[in-house]
Design a protein around this nucleic acid. Sequence first.
DNA 1: GATGACGAAATTGTTGACAATATCATTGGC
DNA 2: GCCAATGATATTGTCAACAATTTCGTCATC
Lengths: 225, 225
Amino acid sequence: MDEIAKALPKSGPPAPEIADWIRSQIRASRFVPGQRLVEVDIIRRTGGSRSKVREAFQRLAAEGLLEIEEFRGASVREASLEEVSQLYRARAALEGICAADFTRVATDDDKQQLREIAEKMETCVEAGSAEQFGKLNSDWHSMIMRVTGNHVIAELVSRLNTPVHHLLFQSFYRGNRMTKAIEDHRAILDAIMNDDPEGAEKAMRQHVENGLEFLTSLDKALFGN
Amino acid sequence: MDEIAKALPKSGPPAPEIADWIRSQIRASRFVPGQRLVEVDIIRRTGGSRSKVREAFQRLAAEGLLEIEEFRGASVREASLEEVSQLYRARAALEGICAADFTRVATDDDKQQLREIAEKMETCVEAGSAEQFGKLNSDWHSMIMRVTGNHVIAELVSRLNTPVHHLLFQSFYRGNRMTKAIEDHRAILDAIMNDDPEGAEKAMRQHVENGLEFLTSLDKALFGN
DNA sequence: GATGACGAAATTGTTGACAATATCATTGGC
DNA sequence: GCCAATGATATTGTCAACAATTTCGTCATC
């Protein structure tokens, strides 16, 4: 009978939640590459315990997002241009094969949905809302991988993207990246609609490579090396 | 002047070393999927402290090798056949693109080395030494990725392989897997020697898919579902 | 003999204190 | 004013004790 209220004895957020929070901070460039993440700071801002925070650090380090040095703690790892380039090559391979698989297994309804997202993105270009464009762009790429049902690849691509997420969003604000992306998407969609897996794969690879090229030129413009 | 001997105050192996040890145990099927890894046990066998062992668990969990449940600790994660299938699709994409890149950038010397490894593997078939064959097979695939210089992909493929490493080695003992692999490698090498990147990519993908098919039939034979 | 309640043992989660190291400010010398 | 040595502070690494939970054996009951 003694019903204990239990009253949410929630001592603090679990480690995965803390890891998510840090990830989101990095994606939002609230934490920038090279920045040190001191334990006490994260504890204060998340309410987690030290062990939880340290656990989160370990996991993020295993994901390649943080770097942990002896007695110096965790810091946001910064990807060199060379590494970003290799990373995009991996993305091209993975998303390329997904585009081909999508073409084979997607229903007409799936394809229609994909087209609708692409159309929404076009309106964003006119409205100049890069923020919304970035969100829809994520949805577009995600949908292709989701429909193929390959969670392993979806997870891999998501991880590969995290380190350059902030650069991606910045890139949409610059030059003609958005219009170029629209063109690429249209080419991919055309191949999909024509039931041409190889064509879709090729177009998707080109799209990813274009993204890298744009990022490279953006890097040159920003840091001029 | 008081030179302190310092006498190796090594209290125990660092966390990464413990993680390596666990990884090797899993690869050698000394630890099998589903098996629980109790902290005290690992501490006794590695000499590491509890925090170190727990750190190692965290990292391995992030790599997808272990599963950690609240108050139940770590256990070796078992990949379903469905997941293995998705994993092989990812490998096909990544190793395929590497085969193409290898064809483009490899020197004649690189290609010659690759051929030599393949030839050594053929002698293994005759000698029936599956162990050595497995080792050389790893070398062969690794070399292609190493020459392309894409460490990101090499790392990804290595991680993707770990969960099925023991199955892989088992497969070489069975049926005609080795001779089939030799054929595949020859086809890939032919394309490479003919400076045909697309052909090399296609052949590599087929090779990986064949590996999956063999693993699937092996699974059916073992567990008959 | 099967089943469920109960309690002891085993195992993991959490916290705090202390040790080792790095980082920073201060001081003294040039 | 600049630079190196020095000490104080901040930060991380490590360990041990305690709390929470699961797991396993025991026993009573049907």
